[in-house]
Simulated assay, not measured.
Amino acid sequence: MPKNESSKIGQLVKSVLSIVLIVVASIGATLFYFDRSGIALGLNTASAEVPAEQQPAAPLPNPIFEPLEPFTVTLRNERGNRILYVAVTLRVPDESSRRMIINYMPEVRDRILRDLSEQQADYIQTTEGRAALVRTLTQTLQAPYAPQPAGPVITGVLFTAFVIQ
């Protein structure tokens, strides 16, 4: 092989190696820059994402409970009268719902008393009966209170005492 051809091949190899070196250096510098600046490229998602254990948990809001004075109602049936004594606490998601319950307390208590007095003692002593009573009270209490266009949001009706005699 003549020396002229050998030097051309050598120059070509040097040029190709130079181009490869420049490309590799560019890619490395780009990855370094994006890693330092916190920009995720999506190439390696394992290093871009913070594991769930290391992420700070968002603080949960404290529950808002509004206890009501206990209720005593007479339940009538074909076998006679029975007495229901029940204490109720309402769970609400926000302060505005709590304020509405407090502001309309006479109407809240009236609605609960009416619903309780319509119950059958044998039925509300069952698990299904109590669950149905919770649903009924929730719907009744979430209905609007005049002149308000919407009622409070009730996320739970909790029985803190429940006695039938």
Results as ranks from 00 to 15, higher is better:
76 R>A: 09
80 G>I: 05
63 P>V: 13
57 A>H: 12
63 P>Y: 11
39 I>P: 01
35 D>R: 09
58 A>T: 13
59 P>H: 14
88 V>P: 03
72 T>M: 08
89 T>N: 05
48 A>T: 14
34 F>A: 11
64 I>V: 05
71 F>D: 00
70 P>K: 08
68 L>K: 02
83 I>N: 07
101 I>M: 07
43 L>E: 04
104 Y>I: 05
69 E>M: 08
95 E>R: 06
61 P>S: 09
57 A>M: 10
79 R>K: 14
80 G>W: 07
85 Y>C: 04
80 G>Y: 07
76 R>P: 03
44 N>T: 06
67 P>Q: 11
69 E>W: 05
60 L>P: 00
73 V>S: 05
50 V>I: 15
80 G>E: 03
45 T>S: 12
55 Q>D: 11
90 L>T: 00
80 G>H: 05
98 R>M: 13
96 S>W: 07
57 A>P: 02
77 N>F: 03
84 L>D: 00
96 S>V: 10
92 V>I: 03
63 P>M: 11
54 Q>S: 13
102 I>A: 11
57 A>D: 12
83 I>V: 15
55 Q>W: 02
34 F>K: 10
79 R>T: 13
45 T>D: 12
37 S>T: 15
58 A>W: 11
47 S>R: 11
37 S>Y: 13
39 I>K: 15
58 A>G: 08
100 M>Q: 14
104 Y>C: 06
70 P>E: 14
55 Q>V: 03
66 E>L: 09
75 L>N: 04
82 R>G: 07
87 A>G: 07
87 A>L: 00
43 L>D: 00
96 S>L: 08
102 I>G: 05
62 N>Y: 13
47 S>M: 09
53 E>G: 06
71 F>K: 02
81 N>E: 12
62 N>G: 13
83 I>A: 05
42 G>Y: 09
38 G>N: 02
83 I>P: 02
92 V>K: 06
89 T>V: 06
77 N>Y: 04
99 R>N: 13
